[in-house]
Each structure stands twice: as C-alpha cells, then as structure tokens.
Design a protein around this nucleic acid. Structure first.
Length: 779
DNA sequence: ATAGGGTTAG
C-alpha cells in the first residue's frame, strides 16, 4: 500500500491525538503535536485541533502546557473549558475549578452536562454547599437533571457536604439508576458514618438486580467493618469472589480492614497474601490489625517486611506504631517512632503529633508530651483533647481547665470529649463540686452529654464516696434518655455496695434484666458484690450460680462475698471448685480466702493456705496478704507469731498491718503494745484518716476517753474528715454494722431504712464510737 | 460521576 501518496488531513491527526489520549501516551502524543506544528497553520491553527491539544495535555495532567495552550486559545469553547476545569479538579485546585466554571459562563459559554460534574466535585471537595446548591439550580434549569452523570455528581456533592437528606432526594429522583449512582449513594452513607443505611442500600441495590462492582463491595465492607457486622462483611467478601471481581489493592484493603476490625486477623492475613500489588495502605492495615489484636511483635515484623518490599513508612504507619507504644507503655519503641517522624518530616501531621503526645503521656512523661504539644503549629481538636486527657488522667485539673479555655482562645471549639476530660480531671483530683458544676455548665451549653459523660460522673462520684449522688445521677441519665453501658451499671452497683443501698441495687439489677442489657461478666460480678455487701448472701449466690461460664473475677467476687459474711468454709469450697475447673487463682483470690479465714478465726486453715500459695503456686505475697494473715493471728491473740511473720517480710509493714495489730490490742487489751504501735502508725501514714479511727477505737475500747478526744483534735488540726459511709461484717451469728457519720444524716438514715427492709431487728450495743459513729448490733 | 488505612474521653 502506498501510504505516502495518501492525503492526510488535520482530522487524522486529531484521531491520532485522541488515540494517544485514550492510552494516556504522553510521549507519542507530543510527537504527534510536533508533526501538527510542522505541517503548518492549516493543521495547527484551527479550533478543533487547538481544543484537542488542550484536552490531550490536560487529561495527561501536564498542567503547565495545558494551561498555556488554553490561555492562548482564540476560541475557548465548552470542550476546552471542560478540559481545563477537569484538570484543576484533578490537581486539587478546587477554587480554580469553580472560578473557571464562573468565568466560562461570564464569557458566554454555557456549561454543559460534562462540566457540571467537575464543578460539583469541586464544591464537594471544598464543602461549599451554597455554591453546590447554585450549581444544582443551574443544572435543573438547563435540563441536565435527568443526566445520570450529573445526578450522581449531585449525590456525591451533597454527600461530601454532609447533607444526606438532599443526597437521597436527588438519588430517589434518578430514573435510570446505574451502578455508579448506587455506589455514590452507598459511599455517601459510609463517609458520613451511617453504616446501617449503607448496608440497607446495598441490599436494595441487589434486589433491583444491579451487579455490584469493586467500588460497591469495598464500600459495603467499610460499612460492615465500622459496624462490626460479621455476617454482612463475610457475605461481601463472598460476593466479590463469586462475582469474579478482581482483588485489586483497594478492594483487598477493604477486606483486610473488615477482617481485622472484627478480630479475624488470620483471615486478614490470608487475603493479604493474595493481593498481587500491595501498597502502603495494604501494609498499614495489616500492621494496625496486628496492633489491635495485641500482637505488637508481629506488627514490627510486618514493618520490616514492608521495607524489604521497597515501601516507606508513612504517617499512618507511624501513628499505628506510636499508639501501640502508648498502649504498651513502651517508651523505647515510642522514642524510636518519634525519631523516625522527625527524620522524615512526619511530626507536622497532626494525627502523628497526637499519637506522640499520647504516647509520652501514657509512658508517664507528660513533660515530653507537653513539649511536643507546644511545638506543633496547627493544633486541631484531637491534639488539644489528647493533651487535655493526659492532664485529666493524672488529676491535673487546673492544667486541664487551662487547656480547655486556651483552646477556645485559639478558636478551637471544645467537643464532648473536651468537656468529658475536664470533668474527669476534677473527679480524679477529688474536686467533686467543681466536676458537678462543669457538668451543669455543659448541660446549658450546646454540647450534649453522652454516655461517657454520664459514666465518668457516676464512676467519679462513686470513687469519691458520693455513693448516693452516683445512684441519683444514674437515674438522671436514664431520664435523659441515655442507655446505660456496662461501666455505668458497674459503677452504680459499686455505689450501692458502698452504702448498702439494697433497694437501689435491686432496682438496677431489675433495670438491666428488663432492658435486656447483656449481663456481662463485669455486671454479674458487681451484682454478686453488691448483694453480698448489702447482706443478701443467698441472692449473691443465686446470681453466681446463674452464670454458666464462670470466670476468675466472678469466683473472686463470690469468695470475697463469703469472706465478708465470715463463711470461710464455703469460700474454701469455691477455691476447690476453682482448682477442679483448672482456673489459676490470683492475688485477689488469696486475699479473699485469707480474709474469710480471718473473719472465721480459722488460724490453721489460713496459715496452710498462705503457705500453699507461696510454696506450691509460687505466688508472691502482697502487703494485703501479709495484712490478712497478721490480722488473723492478732485476732486470735497470737501476737508472737504475728510479729515473727512481720519480721520475715521483705518490705516494711504498712499502716494496715500495724492497724490490725492495734485493733487486736484493743480487744485483748494489750495497752502497752497498742501505744507502741500507735506511735509508729502515725509516723508511717500521718494523713490517713483510717489510722486515727483505728487509734481512737483502740483507746475507746480500753476506756481512755481523754485519749479519744486527743486523737479527734489531732485529726481536726490536720483537716482530715471521715467520709460518710457504712461497712459491715458478720462475725459468728452476729452482724456488725459500722456507720460513719451522724445517724440523723439523710444518707446514713437511708442505710437504716435499708437494713430495716432486710427485716433485721436492730438494737444498739450501748457505747458510742468517735465522731458520733454508732456501732449497731443485729441478731 | 463512585472506592481502601492512622490520632483523643469512661
């Protein structure tokens, strides 16, 4: 064939250019461009060719050339405008894209349904909902509303701007919904955290017979991962396999993300191995999966393998590694990560900065945390909250409050986490009134307290001996329509235990049962504890028996319950059962058993147990264990043996142990030994109100009332006060209730009511203890 | 026109 005689016109070059464009063959296209110029003005200086060249360079993302050619155009038509606006969009210059869209209209070129999607994309990227609505109006006026491309872009724009209602309205109005339209709607729901709706959409789409694409499945998997929806996600994976959708890195990453979020790390690893081309995101997902699963070593190995694959760590890799260092308080790993960030300029990333601050704070180096915080230029809400939480955690409430005001001065509005941290800071510092005041301020602000706010308050009140307030706040939470979670129930129950508020405890038990709140191990353990401390050991046992798969904490709770009731034989029986089930006891088990023996004065059993645990089970006795055994020995009057045991201890005996001896001196009475111990006790812990109570109880028992008032004055001088509350113990067939505080006090009064409800007959033993405390004896 | 990963509160 004689090619050279053929007349080759400009339109052929246009076709060639189009071919290069389709293949994104920049180099070949440039050669075609050269030939066009060579062939002279007839070829190069016409609207068609010039436009084609702008489109070619724009599509190949050669901004500079594309823009220059565009500016030199004599006629800027809808096609070249579309190309240049699209280029701005892809380059991330959204403002320029929108400016171009406006300029296009001003110069009298009407935007068509090919430009509109780009303008909408720019609006979405900028979250400029106002301009987006303007474009929406224009599009409808021009009659492009029916175009599925334009409509999908509208859905996307509304989705990116967070206006899901409008996105859905546009979507519902599309007559011929193709898979992209469906995908866009699903993605909008996922990106706005409305996973249920996304999953719903996915099923509707399948009902309409639309075949899912990789985009569909990976979005569906994101939704499943966010919800922890095991069955749904597995189905998604299956659909991808059955549908023959190739496993590219994005779909693969979505699957890995899903499996690691639901804890199936092994499946995540399997999928990882089958992804042909992995990128840093793929690796990061598996690394964070291992970290989530507590396998930091495996994560570190993956990091090494990743570098062998010639991939570099990015800010996400480091954020994961740093959060692992924080969780394990591994400051060496954390410092290594921090160093890597400095060397690779990753510390300017706020997420990384937050991780570093959090890591140092959790490694108890708040000074380093502060330094990194101060040197971060663009502080976002999470970074402020990280620093705030670090101070709150250690009870630095002043500093937390300062940060709370400072962030507002720097125009970062506090969110619910900020408020919660300030409240926590006060509670950790024992400043109950300040915490309550902050909570009231919060309720009158436009930030709604959430379940964590309420839980923080309830648990903080309970920890600060404000049991009744804790219980009342628990009720208020329900009135506010917030469903209690495990921790709030556990805290409320522990408050009930503290003041033996049985009828509230029963109410909470009933509430949890009625509202079908999963009776978790934590809750059942707390219920056992609550019933025991309220004196209903049978009910405690009933709850205990109800649970089929008993865990160590549950056994411990029941053993401690028996200990409290002086039922040492039952406690020892449970210990046997524990051994039969092959559950290893821990320090709490031993403490419970020893204190049971102590209350029942079972000296031989107690000592035998202690020796068994230390020599056979190789447990290292704690101060509490020594305390129990010494208490047991002193109660039985074996002071010599008690002191011998104290001498074998590796560490110095604490105030508790001396207190036990002192209390025993009261009963026997050993006045000289008691005086000797008192002196030591006050030197050891001069600020512990418990010591003064023990001391004055001892004096009262030996009838030395002037000494009692001396101790009382000493306590007043030091500004120590006793916390209202109640504790009791059953000794032999008698129930001894120790009530701290005035019995006319409403809180204390309620304890009497509670005890009355138990149907127990009450009468006073006859003598008053210090500070108006009364010991009541029940039979 | 649509898709994947990381940080803060009990």
């Amino acid at each position: 064939m004689e090619l050279k005689n053929l007349q080759v016109g400009p339109e052929i070059y246009g076709e060639l250019l189009q071919g290069c464009l389709n293949e994104r063959a920049l180099f070949t296209g440039q050669q075609v461009h050269a030939r066009i110029v060579k062939n002279g003005d007839c070829f190069s200086r016409n609207e068609y060719m010039e436009t084609k060249l702008v489109i070619f360079y724009s599509k190949c993302d050669v901004s500079e050339v594309g823009n220059r050619l565009f500016r030199r155009l004599r006629v800027q038509n809808a096609f070249s405008w579309a190309a240049i606006i699209g280029l701005h969009c892809r380059m991330g210059y959204s403002e320029e894209a929108l400016l171009g869209f406006l300029e296009m209209q001003e110069s009298g070129v009407l935007p068509d349904n090919f430009v509109a999607p780009n303008a909408l994309k720019a609006c979405g990227a900028l979250r400029w909902i106002g301009v987006g609505k303007g474009v929406h109006g224009y599009v409808v006026k021009m009659g492009f509303g029916g175009c599925v491309f334009v409509a999908s872009s509208l859905v996307d724009m509304y989705g990116k701007c967070g206006v899901l209602e409008d996105a859905r309205k546009v979507f519902d109005a599309i007559l011929d919904r193709n898979v992209v339209a469906w995908n866009t709607m699903i993605v909008s729901y996922v990106q706005n955290g409305i996973s249920e709706a996304a999953i719903d959409m996915f099923y509707n789409m399948r009902v309409e017979g639309i075949e899912p694409t990789r985009v569909t499945v990976s979005s569906f998997l994101s939704a499943s991962a966010n919800m922890g929806a095991l069955q749904e996600g597995k189905q998604g994976h299956a659909i991808a396999v059955v549908g023959g959708l190739g496993l590219d890195k994005i779909l693969g990453s979505s699957i890995i993300n899903f499996y690691s979020k639901v804890g199936l790390i092994h499946d995540a690893e399997l999928v990882f191995g089958r992804i042909p081309e992995k990128d840093v995101v793929t690796w990061n997902l598996l690394i964070s999966g291992h970290i989530e699963f507590g396998q930091v070593d495996k994560a570190l190995t993956m990091c090494q393998l990743m570098t062998l694959d010639n991939l570099r760590f990015d800010s996400v890799t480091l954020a994961s590694l740093l959060s692992a260092s924080a969780d394990t308080s591994d400051i060496n790993l954390g410092k290594e990560g921090h160093g890597y960030c400095i060397r690779n300029n990753l510390e300017s990333d706020v997420v990384v900065a937050s991780s570093i601050v959090d890591m140092y704070a959790k490694c108890e180096r708040i000074d380093y945390a502060r330094q990194v915080f101060n040197s971060t230029i663009n502080k976002d809400i999470v970074l402020w909250n990280t620093m705030l939480a670090a101070n709150a955690e250690i009870g630095e409430s002043r500093e937390a409050l300062k940060l709370f005001y400072q962030m507002q001065l720097e125009s970062v509005l506090p969110n619910v986490i900020s408020w919660n941290s300030v409240i926590l800071g006060f509670l950790r510092n024992g400043l109950v009134n300040e915490a309550k005041d902050m909570f009231l301020q919060m309720r009158s602000s436009d930030i709604e307290p959430n379940v964590i706010t309420w839980t923080t308050l309830i648990s903080g009140l309970a920890h600060n001996a404000c049991a009744y307030e804790a219980i009342s706040v628990f009720a208020q939470m329900q009135e506010a329509g917030i469903k209690p979670n495990t921790l709030s129930i556990v805290s409320a129950l522990s408050a009930c235990s503290d003041v033996a508020a049985l009828h509230y405890g029963r109410a909470i038990h009933g509430y949890a049962t009625r509202h079908d709140i999963l009776l978790s191990v934590h809750i059942t353990t707390s219920l056992v504890d609550m019933y025991a401390k309220c004196g209903i050991i049978d009910q405690a046992k009933w709850v205990f028996d109800m649970i089929l798969n008993k865990t160590l904490p549950l056994y411990n709770a029941m053993i401690c319950a028996y200990a409290l009731h002086g039922q040492a034989l039952e406690a020892l029986e449970l210990f046997k059962q524990l051994e039969v089930e092959g559950i290893e006891p821990d320090n709490i088990t031993l403490t419970g058993l020893l204190s049971a023996c102590c209350h029942a004065k079972l000296v031989n059993e107690g000592l035998e147990l202690f020796n068994h645990m230390v020599s056979k089970l190789h447990m290292k006795p704690t101060m509490e264990h020594y305390s129990c055994v010494i208490n047991l020995l002193s109660r039985c009057g074996d002071f010599d043996e008690a002191i011998r045991l104290i001498l074998t201890m590796a560490c110095k005996p604490d105030a508790h142990i001396l207190g036990s001896l002192l209390a025993a001196c009261r009963d026997f009475p050993e006045i000289e030994l008691g005086d000797f111990l008192s002196e030591h006790l006050l030197k050891l812990e001069p600020d512990n109100p418990g010591n003064y109570v023990a001391l004055s109880n001892a004096h009262a028992a030996s009838g030395r009332w002037d000494e009692v008032s001396y101790v009382r004055d000493l306590m007043k001088q030091k500004g120590l006060r006793k916390v209202p509350g109640c504790s009791w113990v059953q000794i032999g067939g008698e129930l001894h209730v120790f009530v701290a505080g005035d019995k006319s006090h409403p809180k204390i009064g309620d304890i009497y009511t509670t005890l009355a409800l138990l149907g127990t007959e009450m009468h006073f033993t006859g003598y008053e203890l210090m500070f108006g405390d009364s010991e009541i004896l029940f039979s």
